[in-house]
Design a protein around this nucleic acid. Structure first.
Lengths: 196, 196
DNA sequence: CCCTTTTTCGACTTTCGGTCGATTTTTCTT
DNA sequence: AAGAAAAATCGACCGAAAGTCGAAAAAGGG
């Protein structure tokens, strides 16, 4: 009964690698089982569908990132650095797998989308907490924190995921972040380094 | 040689209807050809792939909306009403086909995404023009107009497409729009009616 | 009317996700 | 240790769906 879990983790790892490098749509179940050296039936003994595999793979990814982010929140770092740290921990999705760059390929819309959704869902509360802290310390000044954080995250995802963003995009985004959170101009400049 | 164009339009119309009502993924080429009463080969005589059909269907949709928006821009309406008009002309995608509401179903991510992309691409320049006009008239005050417009559009799409948005989301969005474009507080309140 | 081009046809191929009953391996029970 | 029960594995098979292809039928033109 323990061998089972191990096998599943193994399959998850293989699926993760393949989804990342070749894209979800371009990875067939046959590819996965061939790599794993198992039969179709075995695969479906562990996953009810290919999509469920994707779901679990994404769950894995996000879980890790959330853990890192959580540690940062409860650390003693100053607020801006907390934000920097969290944002960085969220981004590896790009540096980690740029070799293929298959992530936002047209055919990868589905995976990309699911990742974004789940990421937003888990990160918004975490970042909100930090913003709250920032308000207490006088960095920020605003209401509706989760809503604001979410919108910032949305723009960030949508804008900086692609390769086509410009320096102007970054400037506008910083301006937006400062204004949306009620921070003094220039306070959020540190974001520039994170993105570029 | 003219019959061809006609057939293609007919197929496009059928595909449009089916993609909208049942979703792109849930519509098979066989469904389309059955509805059209033609053979597989005929379909592929007009489209190189199912995806190309989707592309053309989306092109059709956006073209119409862009036309309407264009007329509004060159009208004599005051700036806020131009914006309102354009935003409305963009939104029918929701009122037009809510019966099934299949648009943002998990399985429709692909279509939804392509629509959003293309829509943003075509609407950003149009709205930017209006904002420019608004600056001249003292409504707004900002630089990097296309970037700002794009981000606003991004947030709007992502936030108000779903059904789960709250009144607070709207308020924050309005606040954001005003601050991003350098408008006086309250100026953009009219957005509230458009969305709700 | 014949020849060319356009359009249509539908059987066939391939790919892929998923199913299922049989079989082997592991674990539990006594 | 023997046998039963449960867990894990196997792979042939299925059905759906996109896409191909060569042949045949319409449409046009001279």
């Amino acid at each position: 009964m323990k061998k089972g879990e191990k096998r599943k983790q193994e399959l998850l790892k293989i699926a993760y690698r393949m989804f990342i490098s070749r894209g979800y749509e371009n990875t067939s179940v046959d590819d996965i089982i061939e790599e794993a050296g198992i039969a179709k039936g075995t695969y479906y003994y562990y996953f009810k569908s290919k999509e469920q595999t994707l779901e679990e793979v994404i769950g894995m990814m996000i879980e890790q990132e959330a853990e890192t982010a959580g540690k940062i929140v409860s650390s003693a770092l100053p607020v801006p650095q907390k934000i920097a740290g969290i944002v960085s921990s969220i981004r590896p999705s790009k540096e980690e797998l740029p070799i293929e760059g298959a992530l936002m390929r047209p055919e990868n819309i589905i995976m990309h989308n699911k990742i974004r959704r789940k990421l937003t869902e888990t990160v918004v509360p975490i970042l909100s907490e930090v913003v709250e802290e920032g308000i207490r310390e006088g960095f920020f000044s605003c209401d509706c924190i989760p809503e604001r954080v979410r919108m910032l995250l949305t723009v960030s995802n949508e804008t900086f995921d692609e390769e086509n963003f410009t320096e102007r995009d970054i400037s506008v985004f910083i301006d937006m972040a400062e204004k949306l959170l009620g921070a003094k101009p220039g306070t959020m400049e540190f974001i520039r380094e994170l993105i570029r």
